[in-house]
């Protein structure tokens, strides 16, 4: 079989990379979008992601079931979110400072409890092969789609619809835009925000489980390398819109695949520059879409960074 695809491998690899790498970005940014829509920032999601990766891997290894691992990661993530939410509900507590503390705590705990699980091999999450129609192994490999990616895609649409057209979405948006208005309506902003942060944490935990249970598919201390932080930034990039989060996650995943694939087709000069592609892209898009009149469109009014 002919395995020489030449330069046509580049778009294929970017597509494959987008599908493989984007899922953690997607889950963390969806969770953060939800949290920020309620008026709070949770910077601790990097820690939640890493702890989710560790707990998911550990439970999957101990029970031999990757789905129990995902469940455990979700529960742990929700707990981290809950702690952040409850602490931030206390008077005069800064959510950004708590977030940084939670990030360091999450990573520290994950490293501490994760020591015995660096070596063992846990079962992987299943993937669905959408490349059955093709004889080319590269196409088949690129179209191996993990179930969590599909769930994430559906979730993005559901969240978008929920924020737009449901009562829960309305409550979230009111709380996020004006604490006073929410109080006047008889809502309890602190409770809503705490719940939103807990759900956001659960999403981030699932994103972590994807890292350790599918791609790259093992637990070690360098597994995240800052993806949780980047995903938080993606939310601003996506203007707090879940559908845009999905697009941004795909873009980031695909851009990350650019560096390795260009080297693999022989364009190897200046690979450090290609590795910076996702960040250059972000800067470019932010500059292109910025404007003095509508720069922060969509930003929740109660968010501490926009106040």
């Amino acid at each position: 079989m002919d395995t020489e695809l030449g330069y046509s491998i580049i778009p294929l690899a970017i597509l494959g990379g987008a599908i493989r790498v984007s899922t953690p970005f997607l889950f963390v940014s969806l969770g953060e979008a939800l949290t920020e829509r309620s008026g709070r920032i949770n910077l601790g999601l990097e820690g939640t992601l890493v702890f989710g990766a560790m707990s998911g891997y550990a439970v999957a290894y101990l029970t031999n079931s990757p789905w129990l691992g995902v469940g455990a990661a979700m529960i742990c993530g929700a707990l981290f979110g809950l702690i952040h939410g409850v602490i931030c509900s206390l008077p005069r507590v800064n959510d950004i400072a708590v977030g940084i503390a939670m990030m360091i705590l999450g990573m520290g705990l994950a490293f501490y409890f994760g020591k015995p699980y660096v070596q063992p091999v846990a079962p992987d999450l299943p993937a669905i092969g959408f490349g059955w129609w093709s004889d080319i192994p590269q196409v088949r490999a690129a179209l191996e789609v993990n179930v969590l990616f599909l769930i994430g895609a559906v979730l993005a649409v559901v969240l978008w619809w929920m924020l737009r057209s449901t009562r829960i979405g309305l409550i979230l948006r009111v709380v996020g835009d004006s604490t006073d208005a929410a109080r006047a309506m008889g809502l309890r902003p602190a409770v809503v925000r705490t719940c939103a942060t807990a759900v956001g944490g659960a999403f981030a935990g699932v994103g972590g489980a994807y890292l350790s249970l599918y791609y790259p598919g093992s637990w070690n201390e360098g597994i995240s390398s800052g993806q949780g932080l980047m995903a938080v930034a993606l939310v601003i990039f996506a203007r707090w819109n879940p559908l845009a989060c999905f697009g941004a996650a795909l873009l980031f995943g695909g851009a990350g695949a650019l560096g390795p694939v260009l080297q693999s087709v022989g364009i190897s000069e200046g690979y450090y520059l290609f590795f910076a592609a996702p960040y250059v892209l972000t800067l470019g898009v932010l500059i292109a879409t910025s404007s003095p009149t509508r720069a922060m469109t969509g930003a929740p009014g109660e968010l501490s960074i926009t106040k």
Binding site: G259, S264, V265
Partner: peptide, 26 residues
């Protein structure tokens, strides 16, 4: 021999991407 540099001593996702790119390249 095809070589792909990741730029760091330990970068799990990039290492996985590099390995996939090598496999894609045959």
């Amino acid at each position: 021999c095809q070589v792909i540099f990741t730029g760091e001593w330990s970068l799990a996702v990039k290492e996985a991407e590099a390995t996939n790119a090598l496999a894609d390249a045959g």
